[in-house]
Amino acid sequence: MNRVPMTVEGAESLRAELNNLKKVERPAVVQAIAEAREHGDLKENAEYHAAREKQGFIEGRIQEIEAKLSHAQVIDVKAIEPSDRVIFGTTVTIIHMETDEEVTYKIVGDDEADVKQKKISVNSPIARALIGKEVGDVVEVHTPSGAVEYEIDSVEHL
Results as ranks from 00 to 15, higher is better:
residue 134 E to F: 05
residue 88 F to M: 10
residue 135 V to R: 09
residue 137 D to A: 10
residue 74 V to M: 10
residue 113 A to D: 09
residue 97 M to F: 02
residue 94 I to Y: 02
residue 104 T to P: 00
residue 131 I to Y: 07
residue 133 K to W: 03
residue 114 D to L: 13
residue 142 H to L: 13
residue 89 G to D: 05
residue 110 D to P: 00
residue 123 N to V: 04
residue 114 D to K: 12
residue 136 G to Q: 06
residue 93 T to G: 03
residue 124 S to C: 09
residue 90 T to M: 05
residue 121 S to H: 09
residue 79 A to Q: 15
residue 99 T to L: 06
residue 100 D to H: 13
residue 106 K to L: 00
residue 77 V to P: 02
residue 82 P to C: 05
residue 94 I to T: 02
residue 79 A to V: 04
residue 129 A to Q: 04
residue 114 D to A: 12
residue 81 E to I: 07
residue 143 T to K: 14
residue 110 D to V: 07
residue 141 V to E: 07
residue 66 E to S: 06
residue 117 Q to P: 00
residue 86 V to P: 04
residue 67 A to G: 12
residue 122 V to Y: 11
residue 83 S to T: 15
residue 123 N to W: 04
residue 104 T to M: 05
residue 74 V to N: 09
residue 118 K to D: 04
residue 129 A to M: 03
residue 71 H to G: 10
residue 82 P to N: 11
residue 103 V to I: 15
residue 120 I to K: 03
residue 125 P to H: 07
residue 112 E to S: 01
residue 142 H to P: 00
residue 66 E to W: 09
residue 141 V to T: 09
residue 70 S to L: 11
residue 101 E to K: 13
residue 69 L to A: 03
residue 120 I to D: 02
residue 68 K to Q: 11
residue 132 G to S: 11
residue 123 N to K: 12
residue 81 E to N: 10
residue 79 A to L: 12
residue 145 S to P: 00
residue 90 T to Y: 04
residue 95 I to P: 00
residue 87 I to K: 04
residue 132 G to E: 06
residue 123 N to Q: 14
residue 85 R to W: 01
residue 142 H to I: 14
residue 76 D to R: 14
residue 100 D to C: 04
residue 144 P to W: 03
residue 149 E to D: 10
residue 138 V to H: 09
residue 99 T to N: 06
residue 89 G to L: 06
residue 118 K to H: 14
residue 108 V to A: 03
residue 131 I to K: 08
residue 125 P to R: 06
residue 70 S to K: 14
residue 70 S to P: 00
residue 79 A to F: 03
residue 137 D to Y: 10
residue 127 A to I: 04
residue 89 G to H: 05
residue 110 D to G: 03
residue 68 K to D: 04
residue 131 I to V: 13
residue 130 L to F: 04
residue 133 K to F: 05
residue 139 V to H: 09
residue 70 S to M: 10
residue 119 K to D: 02
residue 132 G to P: 08
residue 132 G to Y: 11
residue 83 S to D: 06
residue 117 Q to K: 15
